[in-house]
Amino acid sequence: MSEMAIVLNGEPRRVPGPATLLDLLGHLQLDPRTVVVELNREIVRRPLLAATPLSPGDSVELVHFVGGG
């Protein structure tokens, strides 16, 4: 498997590719049930993660709930 360059949480990063967003979460060892994914500023709903391919240069944000007031 080759690699591709994306921007992940604001940082340039090389990840295995071709891959879907679900593959990316698997690569990062993140549970898709606890993470919300934004691809190029658009939210990708959980059922669509496995059907959404990553492309070189994509910007991906992975967020979750942390302590706050």
């Binding site: 992940l8 949480n9 604001g10 990062l28 060892q29 993140l30 606890t34 993470v35 919300v36 944000e61 992975l62 967020v63 979750h64 709930f65 942390v66 302590g67 706050g68 007031g69």
Partner: peptide, 19 residues
């Protein structure tokens, strides 16, 4: 109970998710 939305820490140095 209130919570905030933040980027996942990809270094995984600690489990910071409040859930």
């Amino acid at each position: 109970v209130t919570v905030a939305v933040r980027r996942v820490d990809l270094d995984r140095t600690k489990e910071e998710g409040v859930l």
